[in-house]
Simulated scan of single mutants.
Amino acid sequence: MEDLVKNLFEEHISVAELSAISLITKINEACLLIVDCIAKGNKVLLFGNGGSAGDAQHIAAEFTGRFVKERIALPAVALTTDTSALTAIGNDYGYDRVFERQVEALAKAGDVLIGISTSGNSANVLRAFDAGRKIGCINVGLSGREGGDMNKVCEVNIVVPSQITARIQEMHILIGHIICTAIDNNN
């Protein structure tokens, strides 16, 4: 069992080191876009499936509550939390549209959409980005593997250099915390 634990830590550290080398510029770009969005009085909408839904909720809570320092509450909404909306939209329009419809209802030009998908190919995430682009939103992706189709629809797609879902998700929450630190430092 100790070897398993050691190997998982080593995998995590390896992906973190690769991410630190290859993603700094992309993360910085995303931070600047999100800080500017908030400074202009706009909001952040976050979404993803499964563990990525949990990450969206976690990051949104850091905005509306607080991350590290005391500051005003900031506008962020996880589109993964309203079970009535998710099930009604899923039932009436199909699961591929559960985030798209919410973006159409809630987003305004200048808002930032943060879509999270380890593959970069989740249909409902991609549709939400397409809807956001039509409205004038800024699309920021957190993905992995090779970035998938999110490479085509995001102003910034932060692609974690791993093929392993768990390692990608671990980096996504670290990146979310880096974004929250940038917000804290500018509010």
Score class of each variant (00 low, 15 high):
32 L>W: 07
40 K>H: 15
138 I>G: 02
162 S>G: 07
48 G>Q: 06
74 L>G: 12
163 Q>L: 09
178 I>N: 03
75 P>R: 10
146 E>C: 14
44 V>H: 10
171 M>Y: 01
173 I>Q: 06
120 G>P: 06
171 M>I: 01
156 V>Q: 01
42 N>F: 08
59 I>Y: 01
127 R>A: 04
8 L>S: 12
110 G>T: 04
77 V>D: 00
144 G>Y: 03
165 T>H: 01
165 T>K: 05
56 A>Y: 03
157 N>W: 02
158 I>F: 04
52 S>F: 12
50 G>A: 13
179 I>K: 02
28 N>S: 15
108 K>D: 12
174 L>A: 04
7 N>E: 09
180 C>Y: 00
154 C>F: 12
122 S>Q: 02
84 S>N: 12
121 N>A: 09
79 L>G: 08
174 L>C: 03
37 C>M: 12
145 R>S: 11
81 T>D: 09
185 N>E: 04
132 G>K: 03
77 V>W: 00
174 L>K: 01
30 A>W: 05
142 L>F: 05
82 D>N: 15
187 N>H: 04
53 A>N: 10
101 R>M: 11
79 L>I: 13
22 S>V: 12
69 K>V: 14
147 G>N: 03
144 G>M: 02
67 F>G: 04
133 R>I: 10
140 V>N: 01
161 P>G: 10
167 R>E: 00
21 I>R: 14
31 C>T: 14
74 L>S: 03
56 A>S: 15
14 S>D: 02
110 G>L: 06
51 G>K: 05
121 N>Q: 07
12 H>G: 10
50 G>T: 14
